[in-house]
Design a protein around this nucleic acid. Sequence first.
DNA 1: GTCAATAGTTTGTCCTGACATTAGGATGTT
DNA 2: AACATCCTAATGTCAGGACAAACTATTGAC
Lengths: 246, 246
Amino acid sequence: MANQLNLRIDRSSPVPLYHQVVQGIEAAIHTGLLEPGSRLENEIDLAAQLNLSRPTMRKAMDELVRSGLLVRKRGVGTQVVSSQVRRPLELSSLYDDLSNNGSKPTTDVLSFSHEEADGAIRTALQLPAGAKVYHFTRLRKVGGKPLALMENWVRDDITALDEASLGAQGLYAILRNGGVNFRLASQRIGAMIANDYQAPLLETTPGSALVTMERTAVDDTGRMVETGHHVYRADSYSFEMTLVQR
Amino acid sequence: MANQLNLRIDRSSPVPLYHQVVQGIEAAIHTGLLEPGSRLENEIDLAAQLNLSRPTMRKAMDELVRSGLLVRKRGVGTQVVSSQVRRPLELSSLYDDLSNNGSKPTTDVLSFSHEEADGAIRTALQLPAGAKVYHFTRLRKVGGKPLALMENWVRDDITALDEASLGAQGLYAILRNGGVNFRLASQRIGAMIANDYQAPLLETTPGSALVTMERTAVDDTGRMVETGHHVYRADSYSFEMTLVQR
DNA sequence: GTCAATAGTTTGTCCTGACATTAGGATGTT
DNA sequence: AACATCCTAATGTCAGGACAAACTATTGAC
């Protein structure tokens, strides 16, 4: 008996069965119970052991294959991919990233206004003429060291924003609590040289390297919710991601 | 009758039915037959119209939702997402990107060797001590203007590489033709300042901004195939991607 | 007129069953 | 011993049905 897969299925739980399987296998891989390169039992047996149907088992494995943790080969079997896997780039904010890493980010709100959107912002957020947006600039620090300078525009017909809450938590957390279900975001990552405005705020010198990121986020109803221009100190931040071939 | 969805299913074709549906709906969206924001008929009716079962229809729509073209809401229906969608970041090479955009890239091979891998490369590619790799540096130009400086290490037990073919086509094209099926890649994007070695090659000045990218690619058997450090002129290149929430 | 209960529509989840396709080993033949 | 053929095991595809959950709109009561 190769693997035991220490996982139980709770049929009274509101979380779908296939998702319980996903979580269980993910945990088994992370704890090392399933070693990289090891082969899983076949779908039918695994399903039988957990008292699940094969489609349910398959749906779980589908997700794991898509996320790059498993590799399937017809006629052969399913293997755990050879470790070294980083978590894929997710639709999260910098604040989430840092919180999950144990650091304690702080935020200074440098400016905050509720103003009429200009042409470029109206285009980016697909707003009609005369629409108003929240416009603010924040400085994100970790351990007292400045890391990111962020300028954002958010449409005002979803949830109210104020300076105090922006200083206390991340923008995405506020929007999610306001009922926004993010669906996708398009972003562009590049580089630039720190100018005289950015350098002192980031406690670096003009001419040092910055990573730039422009992002526009869309919710599940197709509305453009937020757009922003962010710059990061290149010596403290980079974007890490896993690309999965389909 | 809202939409007609001009598509036919060929049951004698070797391409899976659900994939035929995916392609059909993608085409309908691209040709404008399905407008952004429009609602599709419900899954059951669509399946019936095409003489398919609901699971098959659903699997097709699952893929379209995952790729960000459709949005589903329980109790409501399925909508075409509000355009403005960029193609997601794919596991392609810079050469592919530029070729697809109509530009004509050229490549200068600055150095090429077949050497024993040092410790860092052995770690990155998970190779045993004493293993040899191809190690080369290339300068990619578009329209005569230099754009990227790329240093790569490739394991040598998959396919043979030589200087001439690297000058004629992209690395990923060569590897794919050599039988490599890429499965995933992890990469990190950051920024740096051009140094005295990079600046003249990229025809810029020391101190200008560069985008950096480090990537390691894995094939479908879990082998680390290739790793590389690339730098791009920040005024000519940026990474654009679409993130899809799961 | 306003609010709450209800019915209907649509997607979400899960089941059982069947056959096709592929990879790889076992078998048998030359 | 080398080769071609068959068989088995595993994933890939597809069908049809059933019930659950969520959202909308209507209906009804106050």
